[in-house]
């Protein structure tokens, strides 16, 4: 009886000790870690990449390339920007970046006065180097150090040639651009026009539309009404290609039309895969990101002074719908 009691007591004791031990372990052992104290040097170079179109495949790739390069160079990089070409937001981000006195800004060029004022006056005031990426703004107007991205003029020429090779040397081509008249679009347009000029049988119709989806659709409808015999479309601004094709598709078959665009639109790849786009000009966004950071770092570390004002051009390729899949 006594022995049984003793065993029972010991058992309870052991059980309680076990519970206590387990809870003590849980209570005193913290598995959560606080973020490490900033071990990096205070003067680590801070670079901001600002785009107007966050979370689009093209700009994600640019950001990825830039991040890779920044990691390699030991700089800290953040990607800021606006969603869906929200200019106010974009400019605000740019201003914050300038006022935050980051060491360098890589920015998607925006051909507006406000942008130019910020880059020319504010950034210059704080001595912050600005590199445009993807879309350029002329140096004279923006005081950008250099441009990293595709040669948009060449891209325009290539897309025109691509179209001609598919369509033949005659037909009506509608060039749809947005009403912003941005520098890179102008360059593309001049490139396209340069090529098409030498083919008298190719008639070009140039049209502009605001970037909002409904307006693009309305404009496309107008154009289709106005020029029912159009053979091809080129969306100079890749972002309007989606809405444009949607409207064309509503009217009838998309296939008979020769439709081309660039890869920096949010829907470009999807449309190409669906064969709604007959071809795109593919740029090298990752390369751009990498190169821009590289160039900026070289500038900041005084390795290459001055930078090539004409810019560092990245590779462009033509991609036809049949090449895919």
């Amino acid at each position: 009886m006594r022995k049984a009691g003793l065993i029972f007591l010991s058992f309870i004791c052991i059980f309680l000790s076990y519970l206590t031990f387990i809870t003590a372990q849980k209570a005193f052992h913290s598995n959560w870690k606080l973020p490490a104290a900033s071990s990096e040097k205070e003067d680590r170079i801070r670079i901001v990449l600002i785009t107007q179109e966050l979370e689009t495949p093209f700009w994600d790739k640019v950001g990825k390339g830039a991040a890779l390069q920044a990691k390699k160079d030991g700089a800290s990089l953040e990607v800021w920007g606006s969603y869906g070409k929200n200019q106010d937001d974009f400019l605000k981000k740019l201003e914050i970046a300038i006022q935050s006195k980051v060491d360098g800004i890589i920015v998607q060029g925006l051909d507006t006065d406000k942008f130019k004022e910020l880059t020319k006056i504010k950034a210059a005031f704080y001595g912050i180097p600005i590199i445009t990426v993807g879309n350029d703004v002329p140096k004279a107007e923006s005081l950008r150090k250099t441009y990293v991205g595709s040669d948009q003029h060449l891209a325009g020429r290539m897309i025109a040639k691509l179209m001609l090779s598919d369509m033949g040397q005659e037909g009506n081509v509608i060039l749809l651009s947005d009403s912003q008249q941005e520098y890179y679009q102008q360059q593309r347009l001049t490139g396209i026009k340069e090529v098409l000029q030498s083919f008298p049988n190719v008639k070009t119709i140039y049209a502009e539309t605001p970037e909002a989806r409904e307006q693009v659709i309305a404009k496309t409808r107008d154009l289709l009404n106005q020029y029912p015999d159009a053979d091809g479309f080129i969306a100079v601004n890749a972002n309007i290609a989606g809405a444009m094709i949607q409207e064309i598709g509503r009217r009838g078959q998309v296939e008979p039309y020769y439709i081309y665009s660039f890869d920096d639109g949010s829907e470009s790849n999807t449309l190409l895969n669906q064969k709604k786009l007959d071809g795109v000009i593919e740029q090298s966004p990752e390369m751009m990101g990498k190169k821009s950071v590289d160039v900026l770092m070289r500038w900041l570390e005084n390795e290459t002074v001055p930078l090539d004002a004409d810019g560092y051009l990245s590779e462009i390729r033509m991609i036809k719908a049949m090449d895919k899949r």
Binding site: P35, A37, R46, I96, A97, S100, K101
Partner: peptide
């Protein structure tokens, strides 16, 4: 308050204050 998570933002923040 600087730490590895908020380093970038915090430096910007402080520079903004300076500005």
């Amino acid at each position: 308050l600087i730490n590895s998570e908020n380093e970038f933002a915090l430096v910007n923040y402080m520079n903004l204050i300076d500005s």
